[in-house]
Amino acid sequence: MIMFYGIYYNSSCLLCSYLLEPNQLKKLFGYIQHPSFDIAADAADAFKDLLTRHKSTVSESLSKNYCWFFTEMNEKLLKSENYITRRQAVKLLGCILLDRSNSCVMTRYVSSKDNLIILMNLLRDQSKNIQIDAFHVFKLFVANENKPPEIVSILVTNRSKLLRLLSAFVYTDDEVFETDKIQVVNKLVVLELQD
Score class of each variant (00 low, 15 high):
residue 177 F to Y: 11
residue 105 V to N: 05
residue 194 Q to Y: 10
residue 8 Y to H: 10
residue 110 V to C: 02
residue 96 I to Y: 06
residue 115 N to L: 03
residue 57 T to K: 06
residue 27 K to R: 06
residue 110 V to G: 03
residue 151 I to Q: 08
residue 34 H to C: 03
residue 98 L to H: 11
residue 69 F to R: 09
residue 157 T to Q: 15
residue 28 L to N: 03
residue 110 V to T: 04
residue 44 A to R: 08
residue 46 A to G: 00
residue 87 R to I: 03
residue 189 V to M: 14
residue 3 M to N: 11
residue 14 L to I: 04
residue 42 D to Q: 13
residue 49 D to A: 01
residue 15 L to K: 10
residue 173 D to V: 12
residue 114 D to N: 10
residue 94 G to R: 11
residue 195 D to C: 10
residue 68 W to Y: 13
residue 21 E to P: 02
residue 99 D to V: 00
residue 154 I to D: 14
residue 64 K to R: 13
residue 50 L to A: 01
residue 174 D to R: 02
residue 171 Y to Q: 02
residue 184 V to G: 07
residue 72 E to R: 09
residue 60 E to G: 00
residue 195 D to P: 15
residue 123 L to R: 04
residue 14 L to A: 12
residue 123 L to T: 06
residue 115 N to T: 03
residue 152 V to P: 02
residue 26 K to G: 01
residue 135 F to Q: 09
residue 172 T to E: 12
residue 124 R to N: 13
residue 130 I to S: 08
residue 18 Y to W: 02
residue 131 Q to N: 13
residue 159 R to C: 13
residue 129 N to D: 14
residue 96 I to F: 07
residue 131 Q to W: 05
residue 55 K to H: 08
residue 8 Y to R: 13
residue 106 M to G: 00
residue 70 F to R: 04
residue 124 R to W: 01
residue 73 M to F: 15
residue 176 V to R: 03
residue 138 F to K: 08
residue 16 C to V: 06
residue 162 L to H: 11
residue 117 I to E: 10
residue 117 I to W: 00
residue 13 C to P: 02
residue 62 L to V: 06
residue 156 V to Q: 05
residue 49 D to T: 00
residue 93 L to I: 06
residue 47 F to K: 00
residue 25 L to G: 08
residue 148 P to C: 06
residue 99 D to A: 12
residue 14 L to G: 07
residue 97 L to I: 08
residue 140 L to K: 14
residue 171 Y to D: 08
residue 148 P to Y: 09
residue 26 K to R: 10
residue 39 I to N: 05
residue 180 D to Y: 06
residue 5 Y to C: 04
residue 129 N to R: 12
residue 2 I to S: 11
residue 194 Q to G: 07
residue 136 H to V: 02
residue 13 C to E: 14
residue 184 V to P: 05
residue 100 R to D: 15
residue 160 S to P: 03
residue 119 L to Q: 04
residue 39 I to W: 02
residue 89 A to M: 05
residue 75 E to V: 08
residue 79 K to G: 00
residue 4 F to M: 10
residue 30 G to F: 02
residue 49 D to N: 05
residue 157 T to C: 04
residue 128 K to P: 04
residue 73 M to T: 07
residue 63 S to Q: 12
residue 187 K to L: 15
residue 75 E to G: 03
residue 21 E to L: 11
residue 65 N to D: 15
residue 159 R to N: 09
residue 13 C to N: 12
residue 5 Y to G: 01
residue 179 T to M: 04
residue 123 L to N: 05
residue 56 S to T: 14
residue 93 L to C: 13
residue 193 L to P: 01
residue 31 Y to P: 00
residue 142 V to M: 07
